[in-house]
């Protein structure tokens, strides 16, 4: 399984999923600054020129959260992909929710923080997005009333796909502490060895590029 994209990009989500399922994988780094994601070799894999993309035998696909559903359904039985229709439906639901509802808000905040100097940041944009984030985080809190994770007792792709987007909120300075259950859940997700290993890969890549 080959994951195309810089480990600093959304490709990190897919590396995390691969780690959780114990699947052999290789990250093929693409240098954003050299526009390698717009080069013909990559456009043959994803004509939209967006990373990440996955190549696994005959399978060629894009969309990071979808790639994680594919990895979970294909290699994650007994780990990321739960048994039983009830929990599988939740994995689909939370993955769509993470992409459609949470990511626009969370990434909006992160973009403001990452790509602008402190003096150029628009605090009203950050505040507005924080207000929009609150009912979304509240929805996670509601779901966690029936267990430590989104499908109950076990960590699944629902948690992976939601927490990797919550990470943007946290990195943008959004406080989870008013929702103790969400705070504990996020800490449990990001304490996992698979996540930690990918963080180390990211840190090494950032250091090498500096």
């Amino acid at each position: 399984m080959k994951i195309y994209g810089s480990i600093v990009s959304r490709a990190s989500r897919n590396a995390w999923a691969a780690e959780e399922t114990g699947t052999d994988y290789e990250v093929v780094p693409l240098d954003f600054r050299k526009a390698e994601h717009k080069a013909p070799a990559f456009l043959a894999i994803n004509p939209a020129g967006k990373m990440p993309a996955l190549v696994d035998g005959d399978v060629v696909m894009s969309e990071s959260l979808a790639i994680n559903l594919y990895i979970a359904q294909t290699y994650g039985k007994g780990s990321l992909w739960p048994a039983g229709a009830k929990d599988q439906a939740r994995c689909l639901q939370w993955s769509m929710w993470a992409g459609a509802e949470l990511e626009p808000v969370a990434y909006g905040r992160l973009r403001e923080v990452l790509f602008k100097k402190e003096s150029e940041r628009d605090q009203s944009v950050l505040d507005d997005l924080a207000e929009k984030a609150k009912p979304l985080v509240e929805l996670i809190a509601q779901a966690l009333k029936s267990g430590q994770f989104l499908c109950g007792g076990a960590f699944t792709v629902a948690d992976l796909n939601a927490s990797c987007v919550v990470e943007y909120l946290v990195r943008s300075g959004f406080e989870l502490s008013p929702w103790p259950a969400v705070d504990a859940w996020y800490k449990a997700c990001t304490a996992r060895p698979g996540y930690q290993k990918v963080q180390d890969m990211r840190a090494a890549a950032i250091k090498a590029a500096a």
């Binding site: 035998g57 696909m61 992409g99």
Partner: peptide, 18 residues
């Protein structure tokens, strides 16, 4: 039935939403 077709269904669904 095929893995590629299934992967494409998941991919385009996320793409449509995002």
């Amino acid at each position: 039935a095929d893995a590629l077709g299934q992967a494409k269904c998941i991919q385009w669904t996320l793409w449509s939403a995002t």
